[in-house]
Structures are given as structure tokens and as C-alpha cells.
Design a protein around this nucleic acid. Sequence first.
DNA 1: TCATGATGTGGTACCGGTTACACATGAAAT
DNA 2: ATTTCATGTGTAACCGGTACCACATCATGA
Lengths: 332, 332
Amino acid sequence: MATIRDVAKLAGVSVATISRYLNKSGYVNADTELNIKHAIEKLNYLPSGVARGLAGKSTKTFALILPDISNPFFPELARAVEDVASTYGFTVILCNSDGQIGKEKNYIDILKSKNIDGIIFASNTLGQEDVDKLASFNIPFVCLDRAPTNKSCSVVRSNNREGGRLAVKHLLESGSKKIGHIYGPQDLIPAKERLIGYEESVRAFDWFSPSLMVQGDFGISGGIKATEELMRRHPDIDAIFAGNDLMAVGALKALHRMGIQVPGQVVVCGFDGINMTEITEPELTTIAQPIYDMGALVSRILIKKIEGTIEADQIYELDVTLIPRESTKRSG
Amino acid sequence: MATIRDVAKLAGVSVATISRYLNKSGYVNADTELNIKHAIEKLNYLPSGVARGLAGKSTKTFALILPDISNPFFPELARAVEDVASTYGFTVILCNSDGQIGKEKNYIDILKSKNIDGIIFASNTLGQEDVDKLASFNIPFVCLDRAPTNKSCSVVRSNNREGGRLAVKHLLESGSKKIGHIYGPQDLIPAKERLIGYEESVRAFDWFSPSLMVQGDFGISGGIKATEELMRRHPDIDAIFAGNDLMAVGALKALHRMGIQVPGQVVVCGFDGINMTEITEPELTTIAQPIYDMGALVSRILIKKIEGTIEADQIYELDVTLIPRESTKRSG
DNA sequence: TCATGATGTGGTACCGGTTACACATGAAAT
DNA sequence: ATTTCATGTGTAACCGGTACCACATCATGA
């Protein structure tokens, strides 16, 4: 590979001039510019990002740390992140943390050694020590779905509580008389918020009882188990609001196995808006997060932070939308 | 951040010794080693991967180029690739090419400038010029699902033709009398091979006709369209073999809309074994590729190539397996 | 006429590692 | 006693860029 010195030699100028030309910093004569252009073309010269990185410049790379790319929520997010990154000339490193704090710390060290420009955390296990570590490393980062208490960290999330309310409202309007809720792990902020949204909306009803709320694990099998438990406790339930789509899919499966008609006897509403909801039978009503938009936004925010063109850390809360489908469509 | 020279100063030795210690190259006295260890700990020293990369060593990074991470086939693959990479100390850059050769070329340049160690192509659009470019850049790479003609490139794929035969065999055994096939884009080798497997297995039957084969686009909506077309041409069909799971899902949807019972009137078999096949109603019979294994293998091969511990380029063909589920379960 | 500032360019230290080479020392082999 | 070799360590060039500083040249304004 040709280096900047080769180009300089061929163009008959110094490396400094080439560098100025490449970065459009400082003056370069029009004729010189042409010579350089030709030399670069002739040599097929490509500046080394590594050398640039070492010389203290941006490596034009950031990392996306998420629990597991094979969880259906994340591919769309990752796609959005990478789309925005690539239009700004950035490259994305993918990290699966499995929500394990150890793995996450390990990634942070490796990423630091690679001198990456920033990190997007779509993982929920980020502790205060990690934040401190990142701060000490001076690595810009942005979070998804974090608590609002974090200083020095912008957060993108959607209005999960409002989503919970929206789900209940829709279920009531579609004629439900008794609504159960399968909630996700309570160390995850979104799961907590959705639960609160549900609880706020239903506690005034005389049919409400805390036993209508069952914990799931945000996975399909957890949704199945929780649904079985819920139907055991309350066989008269006619609606289930699941804390995410995967558990809603589990609910659909469990109800099907029990011979309970959806939406005939029980209606089901999920949360997230992953693609999977379109292929279930019946198709799944869900409270959709703008997943792609969230990814694009978080990516854009990080890039702004990296480039220093952002003011202060901030919480960006995006609206969720109800997507009504068959699973909550009562014939009556 | 502390540098190697800081460590050298604190440990009272030269940078060369530190470097030898870090890389376990050359001799280091036991006492010296201890001193260095302490100095590193005290200074919280982390070697710069960037500097190493510039000094001609591996960047411990490779890229995964795929069409679209949000296509359900790829997250599991990506997960496997990253799992193996991280256990070997490598980091993975994610690139979505959308199958566009321009984007791919662009990525290759960027990746070269980042001095990455290798590339995995899970994208099907790699042309000869790209191969040449990679060769001239001297970047090791491994492909998924490529034609066997490629020299200087190992290929991992599964036995797609056998999979096509397997699907037909299973459909016949489950009592099908007339089997249609929805095939994928013929510029994709796997789609072609599956079609051949199908054709080989059915052309001897008197019910066979070329019009039983309809083209789809490997997507859900393409599967729907193709199914409609297929049923228009041959309303007496009682089995559909779709070239991939997404189109099989589309078939399920289309048949459902037409009021055709699955598996009662028509049975459906997909191909790939993506997770989605477990959540359809009925659950989808499919010819499963060992997706995770393929990702893990391709990742391991690339790493071996990078580390120079691999012999020759080779084709690795993995077996597919039939996963029989409800969608082909005839009661009769 | 001379100071001033815009334009244009080169020299070189530096980023933080790696590594070839030189140079010790001490023990074993001849 | 001398060669030989394993052990142990330091010096400094190098990887390929960036950027500070010095130094021209030339037009303009005082």
C-alpha cells in the first residue's frame, strides 16, 4: 500500500501539504491540488485510519453493546444504528453482552484499547462504576432505556408508561372486562414503567387484584409459563396485556394449547412492535415502539457527541403507537 | 492514559522489556516480570490496540458483511460469529450491504483503511473484481453460500440440494400428491440448489409440470404473491415447498386468507430453520440449516486464516435436517 | 516605502506500540 | 582457558499519519 510519503514524493510536495489537502485544513494551491489528486489516483492511495487514530484523531468507529442480537428487538435497532453511522462515515462494532456486567466491562476495556469514539448501550446492566469507568476513559456514550438519574449520559427511550396506559385503554375499549398483565424483569426500566402504566389504569376497577400481575422473563417460554399461571389464578380473564411481544407470542401459544380462542375468548396485546407480531395467527396487536427511529436517533446523538456539536445530555422520549390487529378484535 | 513508556519508567526497565513481557516474546527475568506486573496494575495500563495495529500487528478485528441484519436469518449467524470472535479476542464490525455491490466495495475500502484482519461475506453479491481487490489488499476472507468456483476463498454452506430432496421426500411421505415449489432469486446459489433438489425429486412424477415452480423474492410478501399465483395455476395442489422460511410464512398467510386449511388441505414446508418457524400457527415444518454452527465455523475458519494456521481453501458443506412440525402433519 | 496579512509550503516531533540489533552476563562444553 | 550459547536488557528506527512552527512570496494599505 502506498503511504502519504509516496504520494508526497510523486506529487513533488511535502507530506504536510498532502495532509492539508486530505483534511482540507490550511492552504493548498490549485495546481498543487491537481498534482496531488493525480498522484493519489495513480498510487491508489488510501489514508490509513489506524495511523490517523494513533495520531490522536477519531477512529470513526463506535460500538453498539446490546444483550443479544438474536433477540428480535435488536436487529432492527442495529440496522438503524449502522445506517446512520455509515452515512456519517462511521463503522459499528457489535458486542453481545448477554446482560452480563463482566462481559460488558471486558468489552469496554477492549474498545478503549481500540480507541473507539463512543459507545451505544442498548444493554440494561450498565452500573454506576461503568459510567465512571467510561467517564475516566473519556468515552462518549448514549444509552437506551436507562433511568433518568444518569448524569453525563443522554438517554433515548420511549414512553413506556403511556404505552401501558394505551394498552389498557385499547383493551377496555375493545370490550374487555378483566385484564391480566404479564410483566417483565423489574430491573429493566421499561418493564417497570409498563407495569406502572397498567396498574395506574386498572387499580380503580373493582375487578382489579394484584394477582392479575404475573412476572415473565421477556421471552417466549416465560410468556407461556406466566400465561398458564395467570389463567390458573383467574380463569375468568378476558384480556392479557403482555409486557413485550415475545411474551405475548408465548401467551398466544399457551392459550392455543389450552384451547382458548384468541380473540374469541381472550384478547392479547403485546408491546414493542417487532416484526414477529405480523406473522402470528392471529396477528398480534401491539404497542409499537419506533424501533428504527430509536436506533437512528441514538446513533445520531452519539455522533453529535463525538463531534462535539451537542449541547447537554438529555432524555429523548419517543411516542409509542397502538397497532390494532386481530388478536384484540372481538367480533361482538 | 498511561503508555508503555510510563510503565517502563515505573518498572525501571526499557520499553522493549515491557513489550516482550506483554507479548511473551523473548526473555524476561522473573523479578523484572513482577515489577512490570505491579507497574501495569498501578498505572492501570492498557496497551493501545491502535498503536499495535500501526506497528504492523493484527488489529484483532474483522468484519461481517451481510445483506441486512434485520433479515431473520442473520441475527443468529451474527451472534455465532461474534461469540467465536470474542473468545479468540477478536472484535466484529457489522456491515449491511443490502446486496448492493457499491456499498460492499465502499465497505472494503473503509475496512482496509482500518487495517482489519479479515472479512466474512454472508452477502451473495461478491464479484470477481471484489475478490481481486481483496487479494490485492491481502485481506483474508471467507464466504457463506458462494459458488465452488472461487479460488483463494474458503466457503461455508449447507447441503441445499439435499435439503430440497429432503423436503420433497418428507412431503411425499406425509401423503402429498402434488407438490408446488416457490423458489428464491436464482442469482443466489442456495435458492438455485434447493430448486434443483426439488426438481430432481419430482420430475419423474406424472403430475409434475414446470408451472408448479413459481419465483418468490425470499421475503414474506413475495411468498404471499407466489402462493396466490401457484394456487391460481394449480388449485389442486396439496403441498408447497417454499425455498426459505420467510416465503413459507407468506404461504401460510396467503393460504389462510384464501380460507385454505394448513395442514388440512395443503401442507407447507419451509427452509432455513429460523426461529420464526416456531411461532407461526400452525408451527412450520422446515429444513433447518445449522445457522449457529455455520456462523461459528465461518468465524473459526477466518480466524485460522488470519493466524496463518490453516492449510488450504476449502468448501465446508454442512448437513441440513428436517424439523417436522404441524404444518405438514396430515391427520389422515 | 514599509508594515501587514493572506496564501502556500516544508521540516519534523509526536502518537504508542514492535522489533532488529547490540551488548551484557554467567554457565556449560571443549 | 576459551568458546559457545542461553538468558536478559536497552537503543532507536519504524509503522503512517497530524499539526505546530518556520519561512517564503506577494498584494494591499498606511
